[in-house]
Amino acid sequence: MKRLRTLALFVLAALPATAEAHTGVGLHSHGFEAGFSHPFTGLDHMLAMIGVGLWAASLGGRARYLVPLSFMGVMVGGGLLGIAGIALPMVETLIAASVAAIGLVILLNVRVPTPLASAFVGACALFHGHAHGAELPAMANQWGYVAGFVLATGLLHAAGLGLGMARFGNAEGLLRRAAGGLVAVAGLALFAG
Results as ranks from 00 to 15, higher is better:
Leu80Met: 14
Leu15Lys: 03
Arg5Asn: 10
Ala158Thr: 15
Met46Tyr: 05
Val183Ala: 12
Ala17Gln: 02
Ala158Val: 14
Gly173Cys: 00
Leu80Trp: 15
Ala189Gly: 08
Phe168His: 09
Leu43Asn: 04
Ala171Trp: 14
Pro137Ile: 08
His130Leu: 01
Gly82Ile: 10
Ala100Ser: 10
Asn141Asp: 15
Glu20Thr: 15
Leu94Pro: 06
Tyr65Ser: 07
Gly60Ala: 01
Leu174Cys: 08
Leu7Tyr: 14
Gly144Arg: 05
Ala134Thr: 04
Ile83Ala: 06
Pro16Leu: 06
Val76Thr: 09
Val146Gln: 02
Ala166Asn: 01
Ser118Val: 07
Asn109Leu: 04
Arg176Asn: 10
Val67Ile: 06
Met165Tyr: 12
Ser29His: 15
Ala48Ile: 01
Ala117Arg: 01
Gly144Trp: 10
Val52Ile: 13
Ala14Gly: 11
His28Val: 10
Leu174Met: 11
Ala100Trp: 11
Gly122Gln: 02
Ala152Phe: 07
Phe168Arg: 06
Asp44Cys: 06
Met1Pro: 14
Tyr145Leu: 05
Gly42Thr: 07
Leu54Ile: 06
Arg62Met: 04
Leu4His: 12
Val150Glu: 02
Thr23Ala: 15
Val112Leu: 12
Glu33Gln: 12
Val74Leu: 06
Ala119Asn: 00
Tyr145Phe: 15
Pro89Thr: 04
Gly164Leu: 07
Leu161Met: 01
Val185Glu: 00
Ala56Leu: 01
Gly51Gln: 00
Glu20Ser: 12
Phe168Val: 03
Gly61Gln: 02
Ala14Cys: 12
Leu54Trp: 04
Ala189Asn: 08
Leu7Trp: 14
Trp55Asn: 03
Leu107Phe: 13
Leu4Ser: 11
Val99Asp: 01
Cys124Leu: 05
Phe10Cys: 11
Ala158Leu: 15
Ala140Gly: 05
Glu172Phe: 12
His28Tyr: 13
His45Glu: 02
Arg64Val: 13
Thr23His: 15
Arg5Thr: 15
Leu12Ala: 13
Thr153Val: 04
Gly180Asn: 03
Pro115Ile: 06
Ala87Asn: 06
Leu81Pro: 11
Leu9Pro: 02
Leu59Val: 10
Thr153Trp: 06
Lys2Ser: 14
Leu66Gly: 00
